[in-house]
Amino acid sequence: MTSAEDLTLSSPEFVISSAARRVVVTQRFFDEAAIGLLAENGCEVVIADLPPGQADGDLDQATLETLLTGADGWIVGHARVTRDLLTALPGLKVISRRGVGYERIDLDAVRDLGRVACIAAGGNDASVADHTIALMLALGRRFRESQDRMLTGNWSILMGTDLYRKTVGIIGLGRIGRSLIQRLRGFEARILVLDTGRGSQDAAAGDLEFVSLSELLAQSDYVSIHAPLTPQTRFMIDAEALAQMKPTAFLINTARGGLVDDVALLDALRAGTIAGAGLDTFVSESDPGYRPVSDALLALPNVVGTPHAAASSREGLDRSNRVAALCIVDVLQGRTPPAACVVADGRTLTPA
């Protein structure tokens, strides 16, 4: 864990007066336009200067308390927002995630303590959907395996497989799942959907087939996960689920580590139960004890891995930064951010 003495704060050159509302940003790649938007709306913007290789999810509570003392707003990445932390920061009014997952935020504590928690809904949908397509193509056409062989002097051709007119199973039909569907239509894919409860408005779409998890796993050439991580969805793709997939099928996870049992996935890949996996998220992100499993997965030739980077295009980060900043401004100016962005609002509770 990073301690307070390892970390410094920096303020942009156009920070306004000390009487301004203080907004602390503990995310990297927070762009000048988003900083300017906050400053123009009466906020003093303070950027946490994290040590190389560190993210705010690596910071302990004492360090976070030091960073956030006096803050009215916090733009956060993967730090855990706990009841103890919020209690220690009575002036913190709004927590705004530059992202869409919120499993690390204690929503009950946010409500109980009268705070507001937001996500950057709509900011990274396109970026994650593009990344998912990239993983599908890389796996099907065996990009990694081909380049590794070429580096050893072996330029023989490996036979790949198309995405064109394949059956793609999508688990979860939120914003990213729907963005992926738009792209898959260009490949003339047959699209199977397991609706986890957020996409029922799309049930009338003629080219979507709503199926059970078992049907989706058994029929799909590519299975792509876009569900939230909850106690109910944790390890939803386990050894039993993997055994239902085709031996020629690929698994893609650009959602959350913990939706897939990585130990079971490693066993399945080694046994040839499935053909390969594209992984942007790993259990080891939240449980370091799984790091050897992640390393073993990444060493396999039929795994393409990225470090939870699907949302991190320049354009996606700029959009997400702006949405996160606008949520901060709305709350600090007494308004309610767009409904899709608000995951907890304790201001609406009437004290007992």
Rank of each mutant, 00 (worst) to 15 (best):
T2N: 00
A4M: 06
D6S: 15
L7F: 14
A19K: 13
R21C: 08
R22P: 01
V24K: 02
V24I: 13
V24W: 06
R28P: 00
F30N: 03
D31P: 04
E32N: 10
A33N: 10
I35L: 01
G36I: 00
L38N: 04
E44V: 01
I47P: 02
P51L: 12
Q61T: 13
A62P: 00
E65K: 14
G70R: 10
D72G: 08
G77K: 03
R80W: 07
V81W: 01
L85V: 09
A88F: 03
L89R: 08
K93Q: 15
G99R: 09
V100G: 04
Y102S: 11
I105Q: 02
L107V: 06
V110I: 15
D112K: 13
L113Q: 11
L113M: 04
G114R: 11
G114P: 11
A120M: 07
A120V: 08
G123N: 03
N124L: 00
D125F: 09
D125V: 13
A126Y: 00
S127W: 02
I133M: 14
E145T: 10
R149D: 12
G153P: 08
L158M: 10
M159N: 06
Y164R: 11
I170P: 03
I171W: 01
G172F: 05
F187P: 03
E188A: 13
A203S: 13
L208S: 05
V211H: 01
L213S: 13
L217M: 08
Q219L: 09
Q219A: 15
R234Q: 15
I237F: 09
D238V: 10
D238H: 06
T248A: 14
A255I: 03
G258P: 11
V260T: 13
D262M: 00
L266Q: 07
I274R: 03
G276K: 06
L279W: 07
D280Q: 12
T281N: 12
S284Q: 14
E285P: 12
D287V: 13
P292Y: 06
L297Q: 04
L298F: 08
A299N: 08
V303H: 13
T306C: 10
T306S: 15
P307L: 08
H308W: 10
A309S: 15
A311F: 14
E315C: 00
D318G: 10
D318M: 14
R322W: 01
A324M: 09
A325K: 03
I328R: 04
T336G: 00
T336L: 02
P337I: 10
V342N: 04
D345V: 10
D345S: 11
T348F: 00
L349F: 03
P351I: 05
